[in-house]
Amino acid sequence: MGFDVWSLYLVSIFLVIMIPGPLSLFMVSNSVNYGIFRSYPAFLGGTAASSLYLAVSATGLGVIITSSDYLFMMLKIIGAVYLIYLGFITIKVSIKKITGSQNSLESSGSPKFNSLFKKSFLLGASNPKDIIFFMAFLPQFISSEKPLADQIFIIVMTWILVDLFCKLLYGLLAKSIKPMLNTQKSKSIFDRLTGALYIIAGIAAVSII
Rank of each mutant, 00 (worst) to 15 (best):
D4E: 14
D4W: 05
V5G: 04
V5A: 10
W6C: 06
L8K: 08
L8Q: 12
L10Q: 04
S24D: 05
F26D: 04
V28E: 08
S29Y: 15
S31N: 10
V32S: 00
Y34T: 00
S39L: 12
Y40V: 11
Y40I: 13
A42M: 09
A48N: 02
A49G: 05
S51A: 15
L52R: 01
Y53C: 03
V56H: 00
V56E: 02
S57F: 09
A58E: 04
G62H: 05
I64G: 00
I65W: 00
S67G: 08
S67D: 06
D69C: 03
L71Y: 14
L75W: 03
I77A: 12
G79R: 09
A80R: 02
V81K: 06
I84G: 04
L86T: 09
L86A: 06
F88N: 02
T90A: 14
K97C: 02
T99W: 04
T99N: 13
G100Q: 13
S101L: 11
E106R: 05
S108A: 14
S110C: 08
P111Y: 14
K112Y: 13
K112F: 12
F117I: 05
K118Q: 11
K118W: 13
K119D: 15
F121E: 03
L122F: 07
G124L: 13
K129W: 08
D130T: 09
I131L: 14
F134T: 00
Q151T: 10
I152F: 06
I152W: 07
V156A: 05
T158C: 04
L161E: 02
V162R: 06
V162Y: 07
V162I: 14
D163A: 15
K167H: 07
L169V: 12
Y170P: 08
Y170I: 07
K175C: 03
K175D: 08
K178H: 07
K178W: 02
M180L: 14
L181Q: 03
Q184F: 01
S186G: 09
K187G: 04
K187V: 12
D191Y: 15
R192K: 12
T194N: 09
Y198G: 06
A204M: 15
A204H: 12
S207K: 15
